[in-house]
Simulated scan of single mutants.
Amino acid sequence: MRGGRLIGLHLGLVAVLFALNFVLPAYSHGTVARVMVLATYAMGYNILFGYTGLLSLGHAMFFAAGMYGLAMPMTHLGLGAGPALLTGIGSAAVLSLGVGLLALRTRGVAFMIVTLMFSQAAWLTILLAGRWTRGDEGVVIPQADRMLLGLDLSDPSTRYLAALALFSAVLFGTLWLVRQPIGRVLVAIRENEDRAELLGYDTFRHKLGAVVLSGTVSGAAGAAYGLFFGYAGASFAETHYSIFPLLWVLLGGAGTVIGPFLGTLFMFYLIDLTSGLTPAYMLVAGVALVLLTLFAPQGLAGEIRRRWWRGLP
Rank of each mutant, 00 (worst) to 15 (best):
L250C: 05
T264L: 06
H240I: 07
V249S: 01
G253T: 11
G253K: 00
G263Q: 05
S242V: 10
G230R: 09
A223R: 11
L246N: 02
L262N: 05
A232S: 15
F261E: 12
G253H: 00
F228T: 08
S242R: 00
P245V: 07
A224I: 11
L246K: 00
Y225P: 05
S242D: 03
V257L: 13
H240K: 08
G255R: 02
G222A: 07
T239V: 14
L251M: 12
G230E: 06
P245W: 04
A237W: 07
I243Y: 12
L251P: 01
V257G: 13
P260K: 02
L246V: 13
Y241T: 03
P245L: 08
V257D: 14
G222W: 11
I243E: 14
A224Q: 11
F261N: 08
I258T: 14
A232V: 12
L246P: 04
T256I: 07
T264P: 11
F244D: 14
L247R: 04
A234F: 13
G263E: 07
P260Y: 03
F261D: 09
L250E: 01
T256S: 12
A254Y: 02
P260I: 11
G253M: 03
G222K: 06
W248F: 15
F228A: 13
G230I: 04
G233K: 04
G222S: 13
A254S: 11
T264C: 14
G222D: 10
I243L: 15
G263R: 00
A234Q: 05
L246C: 02
